Simulated assay, not measured.
Amino acid sequence: LEIGDWVLNTAFCTLKNWQQKYSFKGIMSINISPMQLKQPNFIENIRNLLIKYNLNPDAVEIEITEGIMIENMNEAIEKLNSLKNIGLRISLDDFGTGYSSLSYLQVLPLNTLKIDKSFITGITEKNGIQANITNSIITMVTKMGLQTIAEGVEKNEQLQILKKFNCHIVQGFLRGKPMLEQNCAAYLGGKKSALISLETEKS
């Protein structure tokens, strides 16, 4: 829990710093554990951080996994709705790896759905199974008004297929590897060579 609190504070602080220094218009997505969400003061802590750093809640996305729903679904949904009412965005990570993913889409107050890497890895295979599943997910979720993010994109062939499926956001080594904070700051400051990806490593 102490690490979780540190991550939240650091993420909010970093977002404010990027906005002030680089006019950053993006979204800071923060992974939240089931244990964090269960804390009685979690919602209040989020409110206090928004006030402390004077941030628009729409610039913050709380990223969850289906594990949050296991112990007490009703409580989890209630807290997520509270976060959504404050104005924060909600993202469901690793979609497709659980047993009740489709039912969760009906009850969770989501903005974004992240398609698990396990689907993207085989999206270029000739049998077309993974491609058809991925296309169906993107089509369904788009009709629900949600954004889709494809995880684990490491090949240009995967990227081109996802473009055809109208998936406009990708996450993966092809476009960007995890980077140190100073690399991120340098990139936001205009130093394009600070970005680390499979594409930049080839050039």
Rank of each mutant, 00 (worst) to 15 (best):
L1F: 08
E2C: 07
E2M: 12
I3K: 12
D5G: 10
C13H: 08
L15C: 10
L15I: 13
L15R: 06
K16P: 00
Y22V: 00
S23K: 13
K25Y: 00
K25A: 13
G26A: 01
I27R: 07
M28V: 02
I30S: 09
N31I: 00
I32D: 01
M35S: 12
Q36K: 05
L37G: 04
L37K: 01
Q39C: 02
P40E: 12
N41Q: 14
N41D: 15
I43G: 03
E44D: 15
E44R: 14
I46D: 06
R47F: 04
N48F: 07
K52C: 03
K52V: 01
Y53P: 03
P57D: 10
V60R: 09
E63I: 09
I64P: 08
I64F: 12
T65N: 13
M69E: 02
E75F: 00
I77G: 03
L80G: 05
G87K: 06
G87M: 12
L92H: 10
L92R: 10
L92A: 05
D93W: 03
D93N: 08
D93K: 06
Q106P: 01
Q106G: 09
P109V: 05
P109L: 09
T112W: 07
L113Y: 08
F119N: 10
G122P: 09
I123S: 07
T124R: 02
Q130P: 00
Q130I: 00
Q130G: 01
Q130F: 12
N132K: 15
N135D: 15
N135Y: 09
I138T: 01
T139R: 07
V141E: 07
M144I: 00
G145V: 04
G145S: 11
L146S: 06
Q147L: 14
T148N: 13
I149N: 08
I149R: 13
G152T: 12
V153C: 09
E154H: 12
E154V: 06
E157P: 04
I161K: 04
K163N: 14
K163Q: 15
K163W: 03
K163I: 06
K164R: 11
F165N: 10
H168N: 14
H168V: 00
V170E: 02
G172P: 06
R175F: 14
R175V: 05
G176Y: 05
K177M: 15
P178L: 11
L180R: 14
N183R: 11
C184E: 05
A185P: 01
Y187Q: 02
G189C: 05
A194K: 05
S197N: 04
L198H: 08
E199R: 15
T200P: 00
T200R: 11
E201N: 13
S203N: 15
